[in-house]
Design a binder for these strands. Structure first.
Length: 452
RNA sequence: GUGGUUGUAGCUCAGUUGGUUAGAGCGUCGGUUUGUGGUACCGAAAGUCGCGGGUUCGAGCCCCGUCUCCCACCCCA
């Protein structure tokens, strides 16, 4: 028989790995809750009409599409099949797809539930998303995103709080990070000043590659998109900005003086930097004009977080979108949000081995016994310990000690309660510390005190 | 979507110019030990050598195809 396997780009997680992953999810959740965000969930699959066209041309190709139930070819004529036009045929036999991110389904959710929602609406969502990408380092076809968004508020305090959340989450996870920040309005201003407003997407995609391919290649790429030499010349001082964040903004003010939208972006950034400063945000924050982010729905601040000690893509990203719900028919709702890439954070933590010694989920005590009588004797003890919130289990068969102790050892259970005739006669158990090897004849109260 | 790379036991890997019955370590299970795990010693189970075809008296090894893993590009978390 063929060995069973799982699809490309997906992973299984063992109990030990899940304990580590839950540590990440729990940490992120706790911080989200501290800031008043509430959890929602949406279905794994959405109608393709909801998903298509929201992620650009590339994004549409990366959507996993779900075949219609039943005879999905029944509605198709032979001519249509002969035409072999995949794009056209797909819409005929697939009307659902797996979600590509959490933001677009969230926008759909907001529009659909607009009359039940009190604005500003602060929600968080931790669920897997799927992309038909080719897997490689730090890239999976199924991965978890942890999204926090606020919709229905234009205030830049929301941007501040998201930055504080990033600050707090990575402080708790002990990952050193750099928060890169930019503003779509500044990018628009730049396009306006050099007279290529309609080419803004091409320009941002190109300058996003500054780090990777360097100034010269970026200029080549911009030129190849049909942008004039004159405009490229005007772009140069902007690509070469230097100094502190505020110094960069001062230089930009000179260049962008004639652009209303550009100046607005600069003002926003000044406010955000000022707030971060006042609130003593510790994470290193860097204004990075090469940060563009491919998603075209952003309209204001853009964020991206990179781990400093591990070579991996960005581990968190997000930004302000003024009209995400507009495509679903609800105008004038502004939102801002970020997404923590749980699977990349997991990879970072694995590489740096930053997990806490003990997991809250782990069993604290295992009861082992020598016979059927002893098994029954243990049951009330287990109930009592569990009532106190202590994770306790019993080895369900009175087999050899070696086997039972080995079980405790393998599960890294720190305490074992050994029960035989002697202990039963005294109404106690032999409590063994698996690390030190010490053992003490103990009462129930002793156990609760030791483990509680 | 483009290019490169990998595939032998549950895991990590050996395997001679093509030659009998494909090996090791770790892990698993059992025993040494019927009141004690993590150490030690002994033993066992476990492989269609990714899959399909070809060359050959003979293929884990050579050839073709295919799938897969990983990596880079594109794009992204």
């Amino acid at each position: 028989m063929q060995k069973p396997s799982i699809p490309k780009g997906t992973r299984d997680f063992t109990p030990r790995e899940m304990a580590n992953r839950n540590y990440i999810f729990n940490t992120i959740k706790e911080v989200f809750c501290l800031y008043g965000f509430q959890q929602i969930e949406t279905p794994a699959m959405e109608n393709l009409s909801t998903l298509m066209g929201k992620y650009g041309e590339e994004g549409d190709k990366l959507l996993f599409k779900i075949l219609n139930s039943g005879d999905y070819l029944s509605g198709l004529s032979d001519e249509e099949l002969q035409g072999r036009n995949s794009a056209k045929l797909t819409s005929k036999f697939s009307e659902k797809g797996l979600r590509y991110d959490l933001t677009v389904p969230f926008a759909r959710f907001v529009v659909q539930h607009q009359n039940e929602i009190t604005f500003p609406f602060k929600r968080y969502q931790i669920q897997p998303v799927w992309r038909a990408d080719r897997p490689q380092k730090g890239r999976y076809r199924e991965f978890y995103q942890c999204d926090v968004d606020v919709v229905g508020s234009d205030s830049l305090l929301n941007e501040l709080e998201l930055i504080q959340i990033v600050d707090e989450v990575y402080r708790r996870l002990k990952i050193n990070v750099c928060l890169k920040i930019n503003n779509r309005k500044i990018l628009s201003g730049i396009a306006e000043i050099i007279g290529e407003s309609e080419k803004i997407t091409d320009i941002t995609v190109a300058i996003d590659k500054m780090d990777k391919i360097g100034l010269e290649k970026v200029n080549e790429e911009i030129a190849s998109k049909g942008i004039s030499a004159d405009a490229i010349a005007k772009l140069q001082p902007i690509l070469l900005l230097s100094g502190t964040n505020l110094e960069k903004l001062q230089q930009l003010k000179v260049v962008l003086a004639a652009s209303e939208v550009g100046m607005k972006g600069i003002a926003e950034m000044e406010t955000i930097f000022g707030l971060c400063d006042a609130m003593k945000v510790k994470t290193q924050i860097e204004l990075d004009l090469t940060l563009a982010r491919g998603l075209n729905y952003y309209t204001g601040a853009i964020f991206e977080v990179k781990a400093l000690d591990v070579e991996i893509g960005s581990i968190t990203g997000g930004g302000r979108y003024d009209n995400l719900t507009g495509v679903f028919g609800l105008q004038g709702v502004s939102g801002v949000g970020i997404s923590f890439g749980a699977d990349r954070i997991y990879d970072v933590l694995n590489q740096l081995n930053l997990y806490p010694e003990t997991s809250v989920e782990q069993t604290k005590i295992l009861f082992v016994s020598f016979g059927e009588q002893e098994l029954l004797y243990c049951l009330p003890w287990l109930t009592a310990l569990r009532a106190k919130g202590i994770n306790a289990e019993i080895y369900p068969e009175p087999t050899k000690m070696k086997k039972q102790m080995g079980y405790a050892d393998n599960k890294r259970i720190p305490f074992v309660a050994i029960v035989g005739e002697t202990e039963m006669n005294e109404g106690k158990v032999m409590l063994k510390n698996m690390v030190s090897g010490e053992q003490v004849l103990s009462t129930l109260e002793d156990l609760i005190e030791q483990l509680g």
